[in-house]
Amino acid sequence: MEETITNLLDTYFTTEEEFADCFVVDITHSNKRLEVFVDSDSAMTFGKCQRISRYLEGYLDEEKPLGEEYMLNVSSPGVDRPLKFYRQYLKNIGRTLEVTSTDGETYTGQLKAATPTEIVLEAKRRIKEGKRKKTVVEDITLAHDAIKKSIVKISFKS
């Protein structure tokens, strides 16, 4: 089911100019419930999600892979959903991320750069210098395949 919906949307995104920068982030389904998370390189608006939902409803109503009655939710991935793709990292340069590496280390810092193979975080770290501790700022480079999970941290400080 996920592969079918992804292929359907990929075709839709390449044929509809308004959706040319959109991409599927995740699809979950169980029984009669289908959730589709879509992002874009530009702003992912409610209107875009609504039009994508209507497009999918046409397929679901005609082909009936979930039966007569189903629940469909199309949305952008919220800040609580992990970043999965390079394109998402690009959109979040300058924001604070909490990154858990595959070896269990957790880093929190500002995303400075992203390439197709790695990211660079500017993170603060406490080190012991003599009898005192001091905070140092360092750049941490992590390969994408060394990242288990990356979450955007929202700050409410002004």
Rank of each mutant, 00 (worst) to 15 (best):
A20Y: 07
V24D: 05
Q50D: 14
P82D: 11
F19Q: 03
L66P: 06
G78N: 06
L66I: 07
L66E: 06
E68L: 14
S76L: 06
C49G: 08
C22M: 04
R81L: 09
P65V: 10
E18W: 07
F85A: 01
P82K: 08
A43W: 10
D61V: 00
A20C: 08
G67C: 12
F37T: 01
V79S: 11
M44T: 13
A43Q: 15
T45H: 05
V74S: 12
E63W: 10
D80N: 14
S53A: 11
S40D: 00
K64G: 01
L72V: 01
S53E: 09
L72D: 01
E35Y: 01
M44F: 04
V36C: 02
E63V: 15
E57I: 05
V25K: 11
L83V: 10
N31Y: 02
D41Y: 01
E62S: 14
V74A: 09
V79T: 14
P82H: 01
T45N: 09
E63F: 12
D39H: 03
F46Y: 15
F46P: 00
Y55D: 00
Y55T: 04
S76G: 08
N31C: 02
P82E: 13
Y86S: 10
S53Y: 02
R51G: 05
H29C: 05
F19T: 03
F85C: 00
S42C: 09
R33M: 12
E57A: 15
V38P: 01
Y70A: 10
F23P: 06
E35L: 08
